[in-house]
Write a protein that binds this DNA or RNA. Structure first.
Length: 312
RNA sequence: GGCGUCUUAGCCAAGGGGUAAGGCGUGGGUCUGCAACACCCUGAUCGCCGGUUCAAAUCCGGCAGACGCCU
């Protein structure tokens, strides 16, 4: 155990695997508080579709970074990192164990390895210019060529079709003068500043997919459609970060007449399964992660793993 | 029982003598400021048997199955 470092227990894993319940039980056993690493649960009014625990279900365990944003606000990894770092410090200062729980791998990485985000490296005005450029005929190709010259390594690994990443790489280069690939390489070599135990809760693939399908049905029964309808009336539009979330995006399309309701629900299930698969791919590539199969490993086992680690 | 149509990957499906489009699903992967995002990769020898031909999934015949109509 490293006394200089803040202890940090991270429960990651694909959607619908049972992370929240596990984290809650661990918080009770380990005197912890939960910090959510979920790009949708940060938003208020997005309860059913993001599978938020209710106040009662939290059983008095403090949960951070849930319901802290208006759904009209945008959110990103840098903001998440800043907020989560503050929360971790606070929880630690109370003598409690910070338990990070969530499935947004990108946010998790930014937090765990304390990725460096600086002011200069983002420039919304420049981004807008690039987006407009990309929309022009032949624009993507021109931008891709520019990136090939500025940052050949990054360009080589990127498809010209991936306009979103293409624009960000150029934005980064133009704003800082440094190739993004070089910056990334440096950041990737960092060790976590925390006394970290990084776990990914997983389940047999087929079982996971079945749970996803059933959970979507339950969300619909619980009134997800009404929730989305409310958000639409509240003023959320399809282009907002919050409305890109699974379940919300598709039901929004239904409300706009672009899909039938059965189609929308099927699409939610299908895309949630795809998402879970992508999450698994992400976590597999994480260097310090340990997979735990929730069919074979219970809360007590995880507690034992944690205790052993702390006494090592 | 007769006549007709159909039979291509897990599903949908194009092609109709020169060596198998595409979509979906599945699986794998990339991803440091929108990440529940964006993007990339991934499979068959064409129901079975025989014939014609230099060459057949493509033409002919038989068989099987599906569907439709008729008695």
């Amino acid at each position: 155990m490293n006394k200089d470092r803040i202890p940090l227990l991270v429960i990651a894993g694909p959607t619908a695997a049972g992370k929240s319940a596990l984290a809650l039980e661990l918080a009770e056993r380990l005197d912890g508080e939960i910090i959510s690493a979920d790009s949708v649960q940060v938003y208020r009014y997005m309860d059913i579709g993001s599978a938020k625990l209710t106040k009662e279900e939290m059983r008095g365990i403090p949960h951070h970074l849930i319901d802290v944003l208006d759904p009209k606000e945008s959110f990103d990894a840098a903001r998440f990192q800043a907020m989560a770092k503050t929360a971790i410090r606070e929880v630690d200062s109370r003598g409690h164990l910070p338990i990070v729980c969530g499935g947004t791998g990108f946010y998790l990485r930014a937090l765990i390895y304390d990725t460096a985000f600086t002011e200069e490296e983002t420039d919304p005005a420049l981004r807008k210019v690039l987006q407009e450029e990309a929309a022009l005929p032949g624009g993507k190709e021109r931008l891709y060529q520019e990136l090939t010259a500025a940052d050949p390594d990054y360009a080589a690994a990127l498809s010209p079709n991936n306009v979103k990443r293409l624009i960000r790489a150029l934005e980064y280069f133009r704003a800082t003068g440094e190739p993004l690939s070089r910056h990334n390489k440096k950041e990737r070599e960092k060790e976590s500043p925390y006394d970290l135990l990084y776990l990914a809760a997983v389940l047999d693939r087929q079982k996971l997919y079945e749970r996803i399908d059933r959970r979507v049905d339950r969300m619909m029964e619980a009134g997800l459609l009404e929730e989305v309808r409310f958000l639409k009336e509240y003023g959320c539009t399809a282009d907002m970060t919050s409305m890109q979330a699974l379940g919300y995006r598709q039901l929004y399309q239904y409300l706009e007449g672009q899909l039938s309701l059965p189609e929308a629900v099927e699409t939610v299930k299908q895309e949630t399964r795809h998402f879970a698969k992508r999450q698994l791919t992400w976590f597999r590539a994480e260097k310090d992660i340990h997979f735990i199969d929730l069919d074979r490993t219970g809360t007590a086992d995880v507690q034992r793993i944690w205790d052993q680690r702390r006494n090592a």
